[in-house]
Write a protein that binds this DNA or RNA. Structure first.
Lengths: 341, 341
DNA sequence: GTTTTGTGCTAAATCAATTTAGCAACGATC
DNA sequence: GATCGTTGCTAAATTGATTTAGCACAAAAC
């Protein structure tokens, strides 16, 4: 209401207003068990606190308790990637639900920035640390704080900190099953990453995705026409690979694309051959970026559940959930229009 | 190095190690002018601090100084939009440059969440507040803290808080000039928003964009064939409008699209008429979303400078820059392939 | 009637910093 | 020789919460 020049309301103000001591007020407002204050006192204090609009000073609490009710989130990329923001949303939501706030830092993938960020968050005394990565890989991280929980999202590290990962295995199986349902017989894989082949251990996400896909295909009625490799996972690469595939005379019943950007390129190549996804053949993909909804026909894809991963990471560091090893998160199939009936 | 069970190093530890008092250590480490400590003492203290790896406890500093070196950022959307993350990047960078950290909150556009976020940040005693909006509009906000600086990004409010806005006027002029350069004579505008027409004051961003465009066209040799209105600014809408425009027999030298998603739809419609942007006609657009780079040919567009706006917002609340009225940020033309020579 | 137990509450210490007022020692001034 | 000024440094107060140890009084037990 009235703003006045009033300083913030402190515990002492509430104490004075209610005729109690600071100790009593603190005890009452925090519902300390075992402290036997009269019902009348409790009522007086509660009312005074309410009336004055008392809010505890977080800095003072942190100092006294050694806890800041703050989580640190270090991301390698916030801007560039289409996913970090989804992860942040999940983290913010879960943190807010647990009365925590989140300090966010960005490293642009530079190790020096990571060290700086760690130092900064350590100094701010965060209660837990979440390290988010936009591509899945085995990392060698600098020394992390040992006195508070740490969790990695979307990567592993050599020191084997707990991690939250998308369940690529199940996703691969699901993709193949979905295509098998449509009665498809032949399928082409666009495209494994050339760089990834050479060092599978450093790209576990990518490697897993293709290993899972291959294994699922082996156990299905589908016939794999081949895998078309790419330099990178961008539309231009998908376009090149798909054009090549079609030029070789292949006419698969279904295309499995490495991700949505690759699928976007594939769409362009298919259009040039007058082939329409969802009608002439099925296209299924991974990630569920925004463009998946923009493409026509809209792209059916298996989502990277970044928001859920963020939520899970928070719960993990707050000790509300298993906090060790690798925690797998389901990748949901987003059914749109690019898979035939 | 050795982690030990050691508690954190405090000022008192440094004092003891250097044989000085806490007061002296504080004075020295903060370079207080006017405090005349011997060079020898300064050296001893500095060395001890370095050796022990002393980092001040932020909570204690905040409590004592009443400043938290923390900024609050409240965004209506983090996930959904393609821009919030760019803004966050700018904010994080500028904040880090000024030794501040950022607390981020998301309201999902719900007023109740906004009130909650404000309360939370007030409680955390942020030194300044940035309110970011993903669509530009006139807002009626709840009571904001009056004792610390507040700035809005990409919106105005009825209470007239300082704001940071993209310079749509200059952008409109620039778009028209660029097309005039190519020798284009006729141009079509795809598309004004039907909803916006009815209440211009509530969509200043959109309104400005079109007002600026119209005015710039009036002062140019270009002939405006017409404006095609849309329900929304999505690819499907752009497709519909462009198809309609072409069906009416128009063959403009240039298309000005409301934003990149609309342009994406326009591309599809043009492709169906065998028209190629950058060759058969020019297409220019606004926003510079990621898809602008994915389209083929790549889309020339005038960027919404969200990162710069974030940077500016931080400088504004930190008092390093004018902190009043409306601060306009340049919208840079991102030259790609969709404008003819 | 004295001791014990329990009830209701509070004074004071604590967390880790910053800052003010001022002490002690020494040389300079009158 | 007393006074003053300067230099180099520190004790103690302060910030706003939490928590421990314990006080004063009343009822119960012996």
């Amino acid at each position: 209401m009235s703003a006045e020049k009033s300083k913030r309301v402190t515990l002492a103000d509430v104490a004075e207003a209610s005729g109690m001591s600071k100790a009593s007020v603190s005890l009452i407002l925090n519902n300390r068990p075992g402290s036997r204050l009269s019902a009348a006192a409790v009522k007086r204090v509660r009312e005074a606190a309410e009336r004055l609009g008392y809010r505890p000073n977080v800095a003072a609490q942190s100092l006294r308790l050694g806890k800041t009710r703050t989580l640190g989130f270090i991301s390698d990329q916030v801007t560039v990637t289409r996913f970090a923001s989804a992860m942040i949303t999940g983290i913010l939501r879960a943190a807010a639900d647990n009365d925590h706030t989140v300090l966010i830092t960005e490293t642009r993938g530079e190790p020096a920035e990571l060290t700086k960020a760690l130092d900064q968050l350590r100094q701010r005394d965060v209660d837990g640390l979440i390290l988010g990565f936009m591509d899945s890989r085995l990392r060698d991280l600098p020394e992390l704080p040992e006195d508070r929980p740490v969790v990695l999202v979307n990567s592993h590290d050599v020191q084997q900190h707990p991690s939250v990962m998308p369940d690529e295995n199940a996703a691969g199986r699901q993709a193949v099953e979905r295509l098998a349902q449509t009665g498809a017989r032949t399928v082409a894989l666009v495209g494994a990453l050339r760089a990834a082949q050479s060092s599978p251990e450093s790209y576990p996400g990518i490697t897993r995705r293709f290993a899972a896909l291959n294994q699922a295909l082996d156990n299905s009625p589908l016939h794999l026409l081949g895998q078309w490799e790419l330099e990178d996972w961008n539309p231009a690469d998908g376009y090149v690979a798909t054009t090549q595939l079609l030029a070789q005379g292949h006419r698969p019943d279904a295309l499995i694309c490495a991700n949505d950007r690759v699928a976007m390129g594939a769409y362009q190549a298919l259009a040039e051959h007058r082939l329409t996804p969802g009608a002439d053949l099925s296209v299924i993909s991974f990630d569920d970026e925004v463009i998946a909804g923009y493409l026509r026909p809209q792209l059916t894809t298996i989502a990277l559940p970044y928001e859920q991963m963020g939520v899970r990471a928070v719960r993990s560091v707050l000790g509300q959930q298993e906090h060790s090893g690798e925690q797998l998160i389901d990748m949901p199939l987003i059914e749109r229009q690019s898979v035939r009936d």
